[in-house]
């Protein structure tokens, strides 16, 4: 990430359903913020590398999300499509502080 990165507090962890996600609106493309079953958070550009499906609407399992349009599996940490599919969604840094979710933009 570049120096210009800044952290934005977006919501409390509890605002995201476990194994679910929330969408953060952004002029240059929405960001999907995911929460896993063990309360890790990840953020990806809300555009599937396949045909642009909204990843935020997929089913979250382990540290993957399955795109709702054609079921590609995307790794939450890296944004990379799981084999044999190929492609990558941009990922954003996120961190948890005192129960709040911070997104690095």
């Amino acid at each position: 990430m570049t120096d210009s990165q800044h952290w934005v507090q977006i919501c409390a962890l509890t605002d995201i359903p476990p194994q679910g996600s929330r969408v953060v609106e952004r002029a240059s493309g929405n960001v999907a913020v995911f929460r896993t079953h063990d309360d890790k958070v990840f953020a990806l550009l809300d555009r599937c590398p396949h045909k642009g499906g909204p990843l935020s609407q997929g089913i979250v399992h382990g540290e993957s999300v399955t795109c709702p349009l054609h079921s590609w599996n995307i790794d939450l940490a890296t944004g990379a499509a799981r084999a044999p599919d190929e492609g990558c969604a941009r990922h954003f840094p996120v961190k948890l502080e005192h129960g709040m979710v911070l997104l690095g933009l």
Binding site: P17, P18, Q19, G20, K51, G52, G53, P54, Q57, G58, I59, V60, P68, L69
Partner: peptide, 19 residues
């Protein structure tokens, strides 16, 4: 468990190709 449902059933509407 809504998180174990495909998006259509979770939000009670059918997702279209543009989301």
């Amino acid at each position: 468990d809504p998180q174990s449902r495909f998006v259509n059933e979770r939000v009670h509407a059918n997702i279209q190709k543009d989301g």
